[in-house]
Design a protein around this nucleic acid. Structure first.
Lengths: 231, 231
DNA sequence: CGGTGGCTTGACGGCGCTCAATTCATGTGG
DNA sequence: CCACATGAATTGAGCGCCGTCAAGCCACCG
């Protein structure tokens, strides 16, 4: 079952884009597509990590259950992202779809073989891993901000950026891939605080809410000022 | 100037440990040792990232200055850790020594050549990157905990673990590599809160303070309970 | 129609931030 | 060796943001 790399929505950005046409076709023979809907689990914490995947469309969350039984969201995965701990016997996290998502799934062994045969692929994955690390540190910086207002503003900017097709400026209107509870969890605040902050942003004319998930950014400058990103 | 890999303190754990004796010697010819003392900067944010390094002894912090001019600590590097963004034109973070530290420094070009010639090295670096990612997510989980008590307890456990030579159990006595201000910064609380929490831990008989940096863990079980790590 | 899950809004109290004073540790010059 | 300066750490007092608890709203669905 060969994959249609030619029509892949992330063919220019995913790790496999560094391979030649021929090599990519070879690798594609060992992969397959997987479709998930919101709430579907791709990997369970504790499973043996014998698969990895590239996200084509949709969004995923990486979570862990802490000792009190609370879910903690530790990362978001966007299209072209790579998931899979190649070097641990077990995966440490749950990976769950936040919406309709399509992935390109590979067996661990196949991927490891491909890594050995194609140094360029190893470098591409290394690059991805460093980008993930960067993203995680961004998240850490966001979680460390003192006020809830700052956290929410920063997250909205980041999600608007991710929802945009242009890498340079954020989408003006978009749908939050996360519920209030997930936002709260990610930022380390409560649902009520998230809800209040969003209401305040709407009342002060910075955003407009469309239903519970839709966001329209009315005053990007002020939003950016509130989040004051250096990056 | 060849490096003495044979006596390297992290020769079994660093990325280069996957190389054969001969290959490691070849790589070592292009590297050199660097010694830093507390406060010395290894990389500046904005510098062109044309070097990378493995930490042999000591500890480093990875920081960024936010738009308000406050330092934010985003990661700690312990011996055998690898530093260097191989795929970005500029480094995004400052990397500063927390104490007397020794590193093994390589030029970016040399390292990239080595990566292409030795797939095993690329895989080792990929593994390290995933470990860094894991550590960053641990930090994120810690920063997201609600109470300051939990954060401090978790950090002390983690630092005790890092200070121990045994991978399974924490050191009973050790020196904090961080000042109160750095701890506060890392955890997203204030200096005063850190100080108060440490005093409370001492008053309740969980730890004993030796000077401003020394920590002795008297009741590891209670400390672990307070931090309730699942990992 | 009632039930369910997600979201919003309000009232209240506590944890931690702010501001401020004091103590401690360290190094420097007389 | 002491006096002093300097910076870090500790401790206290007061207040504000946000967490907790609770009630109500909205959309969707059986």
């Amino acid at each position: 079952m060969s994959l249609a790399c030619a029509t892949c929505p992330v063919r220019d950005r995913a790790a496999c884009s560094v391979l030649s046409e021929a090599d990519r076709d070879t690798l594609s023979k060992s992969g397959r597509h997987v479709d998930l809907k919101r709430g579907d689990t791709l990997f369970h914490a504790g499973d043996e990590g014998n698969a990895c995947a590239t996200l084509l469309t949709g969004a995923l969350k990486v979570t862990r259950i802490d000792s009190e039984g609370n879910e903690r969201i530790l990362a978001l995965i966007h299209p072209a992202g790579f998931i899979g701990e190649l070097f641990r016997p077990f995966s440490d996290y749950d990976v769950v779809a936040l919406g309709e998502s399509r992935l390109c799934l590979f067996g661990r062994g196949d991927m490891e073989n491909a890594l050995d045969q194609h140094p360029a692929l190893a470098r591409a994955l290394l690059r991805r891993a460093q980008e993930d690390l960067h993203a995680s540190r961004e998240l850490l910086a966001m979680a460390g901000k003192n006020s809830a207002e700052e956290k929410i503003a920063t997250l909205i900017m980041a999600l608007a950026q991710a929802a945009s097709d242009s890498p340079c400026h954020p989408a003006q209107r978009f749908e939050l891939p996360l519920t209030r509870g997930e936002i709260a969890n990610l930022l380390g605040v409560t649902i009520e605080t998230v809800s209040r902050q969003l209401s305040k942003l709407e009342k002060t004319g910075v955003i407009v809410k469309n239903g519970s998930r839709g966001i329209e950014i009315v005053d990007p400058a002020r939003l950016r000022f509130m989040s004051d990103l250096s990056s």
